[in-house]
Computed example of a mutant assay.
Amino acid sequence: MAEQAMAAAEAESRANNWNLTIVIADAEGVPVMVHRMDGASARTFDIAMRKVHVVTETGLSSGEYGRRLQAGEIAEVENGVTFAGGVPIMQNGERIGAITSSGARGIEDEQVSLAGAAAIGS
């Protein structure tokens, strides 16, 4: 599943000429697959992992976490990021992991992550 999700995420990224780091992690936040595309800065890995942390701690997308945090609805996740690009991977109603992207604008990162998640039925 991770290979299929990564392939779809990379295809979406390439179709838009975005050089990203894409991370697929299990439910505990441990990376299962990582790809830092040519041209993606080294810092994008750290940001993608911080998005993984937010998703695994909250069960929310990183963008939704940011919106709820700003509204005062939830507690802050230490070292979390508040911008889009990380989404949960769901299977049969259960969160089994996260897919995150970093290197473009948050909404673009999220577009790539959603493409990867959708490829495996999440």
Rank of each mutant, 00 (worst) to 15 (best):
N19H: 13
V30P: 08
L20P: 11
D38M: 10
L20I: 12
V55P: 00
R50L: 06
V34F: 05
H53C: 09
A5L: 00
A25G: 02
L20R: 12
V52M: 07
G29M: 08
N16P: 01
S41M: 11
T44A: 07
D46I: 07
R14I: 10
V30N: 15
D46F: 05
N17C: 12
V30G: 11
A48T: 01
M33Y: 11
M6R: 06
R36K: 08
N17Y: 14
Q4H: 14
I24V: 05
A42T: 11
S41P: 10
D38K: 11
H35I: 11
S41I: 08
D38F: 07
I47M: 05
R14H: 09
A25K: 05
W18K: 08
E10F: 07
V54H: 02
E28H: 10
I47W: 03
A11D: 05
M37H: 01
E12D: 10
H35V: 13
M37D: 01
Q4G: 09
A8C: 06
S41A: 11
N17P: 12
R14D: 12
V32W: 08
S13T: 02
I22W: 06
G39P: 01
M49R: 04
H35E: 15
A9G: 06
A15D: 14
R50T: 03
W18A: 09
A48W: 00
V32S: 04
N16S: 07
H53T: 11
A42V: 10
D38H: 10
N16E: 04
A9P: 01
G39C: 00
D38A: 10
M49E: 02
S13D: 03
V23N: 04
D26M: 00
P31V: 04
G39M: 02
N17D: 15
A11Y: 01
A15C: 14
M6F: 04
